[in-house]
């Protein structure tokens, strides 16, 4: 198992895109978070109680960061098929499920590390920026801190979300094997549903999309306000995303097992 892990680690490290994608993931978290919180004005929310979820907004970079995570997940699998390395890989590790486990471990570790850096950076940026935009304790906004348990849940949840998205990408990569198609499918899954929810008029359908689409359900974990009106409970949403990711991975592992690697 160690051998398989080390082999996958070497392959991941030597792909030129890996470093860029991980860097992009962290930069997207911090950069978009800054853009979102920096453009807020407290007087935008009127005289009444301000209900803006600043924690969720400061972690809004996840919408771009997830693209990097998903593509990385896909690439670490499909690069093997595109370059033909899958044949020596399976020759060296004949127990094919071990290859899957090793790949997931490497993807998870890489994305998890970058996600921690990105989330911490985004929260620190929000802590510095928000008071200057008028979001002070007097307006009901304590300084952003991870000690607060809802913020903690949002932070940990965002890291887990990005890891699960990468696993979903890897699973779809194992099923589809073609880089282009797999990237398209995973990005369409993650990005089209929120656009649909925005324009579909019926609230029942909006709730359905928010509840069952992988990205929307998984990101419920970021909510720190309006918890009573969430379409899906925070951890339940993340669990649903985990179910999608594991289902894709199981299908991929089964196909790796059952299907010839070179066809």
């Amino acid at each position: 198992m160690t051998g398989a892990l080390r082999a996958e680690w070497t392959k991941a490290r030597s792909l030129p895109s890996t470093g860029w994608l991980l860097l992009g993931l962290a930069v997207a978290m911090v950069g978009i978070g800054l853009a979102a919180t920096g453009s807020l004005r407290v007087d935008e929310c009127g005289e009444g109680a301000c209900t803006l979820d600043t924690v969720k907004l400061s972690l809004g970079g996840v919408r771009l960061a997830q693209v990097a995570a998903a593509v990385l997940g896909v690439l670490l699998v499909t690069a093997d098929y595109a370059t033909g390395t899958i044949v020596p890989t399976l020759a060296a590790v004949p127990r094919r499920w071990r290859v899957v486990v090793a790949k997931v471990a490497v993807v998870g570790a890489g994305v998890g590390g970058a996600a921690v850096a990105g989330v911490v950076g985004a929260l620190l940026a929000a802590r510095a920026v928000l008071p200057r935009r008028g979001f002070t304790a007097a307006r009901g906004y304590a300084a952003t801190t991870v000690v607060h348990d809802l913020t903690q849940r949002a932070a940990v949840g965002t890291v887990l979300y990005l890891v699960l998205v990468a696993v979903l990408g890897a699973g779809l990569g194992l099923v589809i094997r073609d880089t282009g198609v797999a990237v398209t499918v995973v990005l369409a899954l993650l990005l089209v549903a929120p656009v649909l929810a925005m324009v579909v008029g019926d609230p029942v359908w909006q709730t359905r999309i928010h509840r069952f689409a992988p990205a929307d359900a998984g990101l419920a974990v970021q909510a720190t306000r309006g918890l009573a009106t969430l379409p899906i409970a925070p951890w339940a949403g993340l669990a649903l995303l985990a179910a999608y990711a594991l289902a894709a991975l199981a299908a991929g592992a089964w196909m790796l097992q059952a299907r010839d690697a070179t066809t």
Binding site: I32, A35, A36, S39, L40, R41, E44, L57, G60, R63, L64, V67, V183, T184, L187, A188, L191, V192, P194, V195, M198
Partner: peptide, 15 residues
């Protein structure tokens, strides 16, 4: 895809 779809998601978040 990012150039096409992400601004839509960002567009609902920006004030």
């Amino acid at each position: 895809i990012v150039l096409l779809v992400l601004p839509l998601v960002a567009g609902t978040i920006l004030p």
